[in-house]
């Protein structure tokens, strides 16, 4: 019995030592990053284009993460969240002959940068809403002006 325990402990030690040595060139990473709370699809379903007002939108959804001035007297507000799960495996092999090293990354990255953008007209009525990746929706915006210049 005692010899069996010793044998198992020996195997575990060798395994742990191998892992410790491998750690220099092999890494498995499991990461999760959460920013904000996702907006459920139902949350904005009552906000209908042409009917909903800016007030209703703020009442139902709270404070947006961004406000943008758009062209032609319209403006947009955006709600966004960023949930990512990354499962990665990296292998790095030093190549002494060339003085460099080779490395390979096999990452299964699920990018969850999502958001909803609501565009309002000058009367604060909802013109359109779009859901998707914020980086795809944001290009509609114009550059933010630093100050209003009275004419």
């Amino acid at each position: 019995m005692v010899s069996l325990i010793h044998r198992r402990a020996g195997q575990l030690s060798r395994g742990a030592l191998c892992c410790a040595l491998l750690a220099a060139c092999v890494q498995v990473s499991w990461e999760r990053h959460e920013l904000g709370t996702p907006l459920a699809a139902q949350a904005d379903s009552e906000l209908r284009v042409g009917e909903a007002t800016f007030d209703q939108c703020l009442d139902q959804l709270g404070a947006p993460i961004e406000v943008w001035e758009l062209s032609s007297a319209t403006y947009a507000i955006a709600y966004g969240w960023d949930h990512q799960r990354d499962l990665g495996f990296s292998l790095s092999v030093p190549l002494a002959d060339t003085g460099g090293s080779a490395s390979v990354n096999f990452d299964d990255i699920v990018d969850k940068l999502h958001g909803v953008v609501f565009v309002f007209d000058r009367n604060d009525v909802l013109l359109r809403k779009r859901r998707g990746f914020l980086r795809d929706l944001a290009p509609d915006r114009t550059r933010r002006r630093s100050a209003f210049l009275d004419e």
Partner: peptide, 16 residues
């Protein structure tokens, strides 16, 4: 050893 687990949770207060 060769496995690393990382989690970040960022939440905000915001007023407009």
């Amino acid at each position: 050893l060769i496995v690393t687990m990382v989690n970040t949770d960022a939440q905000a207060d915001r007023v407009w």
